[in-house]
Design a protein around this nucleic acid. Structure first.
Lengths: 227, 227
DNA sequence: ACCTGAACACCGTTCAAGT
DNA sequence: ACCTGAACACCGTTCAAGT
């Protein structure tokens, strides 16, 4: 993973061109950013640091990408293109669920993108077909086009929330040594005032199971599709 | 709103105490932060700027709050305490929905807190009773305690996602002059490849209705509660 | 055309020192 | 006990200049 230098090479010098030959290229920048992201996380990705990795200066990057958000979007685009292709079922309800799951799985590898994507409610262009699939499957399930967009949007909000929260919690856990505030709050709960929460206090953290998203998705789809 | 100096006063000088009398107080800091947040948004809230408003230095603030996150949490706590109280229904399903709605409404005024809260999946202590209500109502609807936590968690993910996305979109719109990427992507959609999205392109933005969250909530609850 | 250095206008936080 | 000034270790981005 750290040695796939293939895509990180500077662009092949085009023959007989005017101007200085480029040392950097969009591809090389995106590849380096991907590696930095994988190895050290978003918090460590700055234009200056990325430039250092590329033996260049922060300002040189701005010749190839408009700003940091565009760079992150390019990394997502690249990731979505590489992501293993999956056949979707014919049956619309199953297709809807599978597409939603795929949306989640692609983004689960780049949870930092949620903050950028949150500005819109659409995915990267190379994953737009998933959005199309969701809306289309919802219509095939009997939704009006408007309701289908609503279904998509609820799924997207839910997915974005899950990714944001899991990612934030993961990163906090990695960087701080103290236990999360939740644990101390839960431990000190007044059982008179909050009987339910108090009785669940010890079980609460463990309930963050891996299949939470999937189970919730099924419930949401059941609740939103016409009977 | 800018003149409620009442809570922004330095703490009343305690009689006969040792040490230098404090010029700042937690309350004054929180009140000033709240005003800054209301008037200028999170992006403008920095420890340095807040200190300037209080005629003090950034470092003095660290004597009263541990760090910026704690300060933001204190503002939420304050906001949740002030928030108008609402009676909840007896009927468990209605109570569940009302509590979830209340959770959303309280946070809708401080959407910037989602990034801080995202580290845990619990609310501010002064709004913990809402979480208790949701879990309790879910049990009253026939959920096991574990399923009730699951229901709460799906609602929280959905709500956090909605708040995050609406807030990010709002702030982008306020600061940039260009239209969101979504509009240009949607405008350039290949109708062959994405028939559904292309046909919805013009309608998409308008579909961000105010009641989206409420409608989605009902669907989610329908889908997650036992029949 | 592509890249550099210096600068602008900031951050959160720590630390030693003052009163 | 409470506050200050200076400093640390950074940010993203702009701009004029170089090759």
């Amino acid at each position: 993973m750290g040695t796939d230098a293939g895509t990180a090479q500077p662009a092949p010098p085009q023959s007989g061109r005017l101007g200085r030959p480029p040392r950097l290229s969009k591809d090389a920048i995106v590849a380096a950013a991907r590696r930095l992201l994988e190895q050290e996380g978003v918090d460590k990705l700055s234009m200056r640091r990325l430039a250092k990795v590329l033996d260049s200066t922060a300002m040189a990057l701005y010749h190839h990408v408009r700003d940091k958000d565009e760079l992150l979007l390019l990394v997502l685009e690249d990731h979505a293109r590489r992501f293993p292709h999956r056949e979707l079922s014919e049956e619309p309800r199953a297709r809807l669920l599978e597409a939603a799951q795929l949306l989640h799985d692609i983004l689960a590898d780049c949870p930092w993108i949620v903050r950028v994507l949150a500005a819109d409610d659409l995915m990267a262009v190379s994953a737009l077909w998933i959005v199309e699939s969701i809306v289309d499957a919802a219509v095939a399930c009997g939704c009006t086009p408007e309701d289908a967009v609503h279904v998509y949007r609820v799924i997207w909000y839910y997915t974005a929330g899950e990714l944001l929260i899991r990612d934030t919690a993961d990163r906090r856990r990695a960087e701080r040594e103290e236990p999360p505030v939740r644990d101390t709050v839960m431990a000190g709960l007044d059982a008179e005032q909050f009987p339910r929460l108090a009785s669940l206090a010890s079980a609460w953290p463990d309930l963050t199971a891996r299949d939470t998203h999937r189970r919730g998705l099924e419930g949401i789809v059941n609740g939103l599709l016409p009977a």
